[in-house]
């Protein structure tokens, strides 16, 4: 395949990565931004979403779309509740002390990961997409009769993959509406801005935290449900999303959901596109060092508000 079409494919793949990364990272941004806790187990909630999707769709059987819809509804709900209870039972009692929280969430990571290994098994399991149509993509060329459009061999994508992008956008829009236009969103933002003032106004801060923690986990789980037909469910799949989400949240700037989404776009897209020019490993090295350098010279990230 020539360079142009190759780049287009990479861009598309990058967009999908960015979409899922945005969902996962926004989930982390909520907990990190609102509660100021480093949740090392965030990637495991992502993995649980994929695992739950597999369980649900296997249990329901029949047309994959049924299982998919059930998974989209129930997996984030279940995992959100799980996370909220972890917050209520453990993190709350630690008073969200930074070091103790890291230890506790590392513990949670081991518990969840091992639990998945026992319950789900060590092998990667596929989940069928609810629908899948091959869509050939056009490319352009300056031919004898002027500007021509043709369909290069091998340049195609999948309707489900395109759906992922739209779904992620819709979810993020929905989240934005909740955060800015509803009372619960206002309460969450108030608690993030000034916890003590929120308490003074009668906001049950600890319940808001549990809700936030649950919502963050649910978003990650939702992202995993969307990507699992493409990627397969695997008990160790939480590692990369964890790393990437943290990078995205810090680069985007703590406390800025908009920054998180933009950073997810940047990092998700660039990883795919740089890989076109360089070997994937070298691309990753460049991306990693770039992230480090952004922080070294601009510690508050791209859109962050001061130091924390």
């Amino acid at each position: 395949m020539e360079f142009g079409p190759h780049l287009m494919l990479a861009t598309l793949e990058g967009a999908i990565t960015a979409a899922i990364l945005a969902l996962t990272a926004v989930g982390l941004s909520l907990t990190f931004g609102v509660m100021r806790v480093v949740n090392v187990a965030h990637g495991e909630f992502f993995m649980l979403g994929a695992v739950a999707a597999w369980f649900i769709s296997t249990a329901i059987g029949g047309h994959p779309a049924l299982g998919f819809i059930a998974a989209v509804v129930f997996a984030p709900l279940i995992i959100g509740l799980l996370a909220a209870s972890a917050d209520w039972l453990v993190l709350k009692r630690l008073e969200y002390d930074p070091e103790r929280t890291i230890v506790a969430t590392i513990g949670l990571l081991y518990i969840i990961q091992q639990g998945a290994l026992i319950g789900f098994g060590p092998n990667a399991q596929p989940v069928e997409a609810p629908f899948s149509h091959r869509i050939a993509l056009p490319w352009f060329e300056w031919g004898e009769s002027g500007f021509e459009m043709y369909y290069p061999w091998g340049l195609s994508t999948n309707s489900y993959k395109l759906f992922i992008i739209f779904a992620a956008c819709a979810i993020l829009m929905g989240l934005w509406v909740i955060m800015t236009r509803t009372k619960i969103g206002l309460v969450m933002r108030a608690t993030q801005q000034d916890r003590d003032m929120a308490t003074a106004f009668g906001i049950p801060v600890e319940r808001v935290y549990a809700l936030t923690f649950g919502l963050g986990a649910a978003l990650a789980a939702l992202g995993a449900v969307l990507i699992v037909p493409v990627q397969q469910a695997y008990y160790l799949m939480g590692h990369d999303p964890l790393l990437l989400s943290f990078i995205v949240v810090i680069i985007g700037g703590l406390g800025s959901l908009r920054g998180t989404v933009l950073a997810a776009l940047l990092i998700g897209m660039s990883d795919g596109i740089i890989s076109v020019f360089f070997s994937p490993t070298l691309a990753k090295i460049i991306a990693t060092l770039l992230v480090a350098m952004v922080l070294v010279f601009r510690p508050q990230g791209l859109f962050g508000k001061g130091t924390h």
Binding site: I247, I250, L254, K284, T288, L289, V291, V296, P299
Partner: peptide, 22 residues
Amino acid sequence: ALRTTGVAFMIVTLMFAQAGYL
């Protein structure tokens, strides 16, 4: 890395280590 503090320091050190691994 010492130009950063707190969480940024954590991520910068993490990034350098990742780059090393890669």
